[in-house]
Amino acid sequence: MENKEQEHLALIADMINIARKEYSDNSFIYLVWGWSVCLASLAQYVLIEMKKEYSGAVWLILIPVAIFHIIFSVRQNRNEKVKTHMDKILGYVWIAVGVSLGVVGCSVYVMQLSAYPVFILLYGIGTFISGGIMNLKPMKIGAICCWVIAVVAFHVSFEYQSLLLSLSLILSYIIPGHLLKNRFRKNV
């Protein structure tokens, strides 16, 4: 009799372990946003150095990126065989970060300071929570780097803030994104 009870407890543990290892491969989205924001901020830095006007126009590239993200996410969700609690929490975290980035971005003309250090801070929040949930140490380290970079960014001029923004993206999105992609490939 006791053997059966033990077997059942083992079965429960096995099934929970199987389900725990299930998570969506979000690395592609991290890489898309990481590379596009990183290249846009580098381009802005170059344009500022070249004394070009309207350097801020580089950010328009994020409109097609956002549209692509929405289409990609809808298709990915439709094809997922399972929706985990982790996917749901991550979704809410990034909606919160995305809305906050949008609010700061839209208020940039009335703010007395540059928005870039605030963007870096928000990237730090999103990637720190994501890294914690997915247990991805490089992402947590990237997030801590973001916060350190944000402190520096508050004290330097605007063109260097563009450079620091791209550095924060490399550390918190691009490097962890590639590592996450490799981890997912190994699991499949």
Partner: peptide, 26 residues
Amino acid sequence: HSQLRLAIVSLLISVEEAEFTFLKEK
């Protein structure tokens, strides 16, 4: 107390929702 029903419930308790094919596979 049936092995398969317990396995199904243990899987479903760990996720938001799951498709039939996922449960069959696991």
